[in-house]
């Protein structure tokens, strides 16, 4: 259909329709991710241990930063919007290494 050959597909239908009712999982299941093998973002949990704000935890729109019981952070790169919020709100040098996924991989928006 286009120069690049991409076909914006149809999204998922989410049953129900009351907003508070949508679980975060259902919300994220509406987004297409072509997950690559390389983690394009890494988090150094040792640095996070000394962080008092843990700003990433609530600000990341994909909710990918999970605080651990030892005061660190468990991070999963797979369902990431590649937005940049995390490295901008983090004020600990070296905590986050941020790159883009390899070409063609990562999030694919159809209704952006």
């Amino acid at each position: 259909m286009s120069a690049a050959g991409g076909v914006p597909g149809s999204g998922h239908e989410v049953p129900g329709g009351t907003w508070r009712g949508i679980s975060f999982e259902d919300r994220m299941s509406t987004v297409e991710f072509r997950v690559g093998e390389r983690a394009h973002i890494t988090v150094d949990s040792d640095v996070c241990r000394s962080c008092t704000t843990k700003a990433c935890v609530t600000a990341c729109p994909a909710n990918l930063f999970a605080p651990t019981s030892e005061g660190g952070i468990l991070f999963n790169y797979e369902e990431c919007f590649e937005c940049g919020t995390c490295y901008m709100v983090c004020n600990h040098e070296g905590a986050i290494t941020w790159t883009y996924p390899d070409g063609g991989l990562g999030v694919v928006f159809h209704h952006g």
């Binding site: 690049a4 991409g6 999030v107 694919v108 928006f109 159809h110 952006g112």
Partner: peptide
């Protein structure tokens, strides 16, 4: 050069 699989695939407004 575009990193997404098609133009617009990474973009939101």
């Amino acid at each position: 050069v575009e990193r997404g699989p098609f133009p617009g695939s990474k973009n939101v407004y």
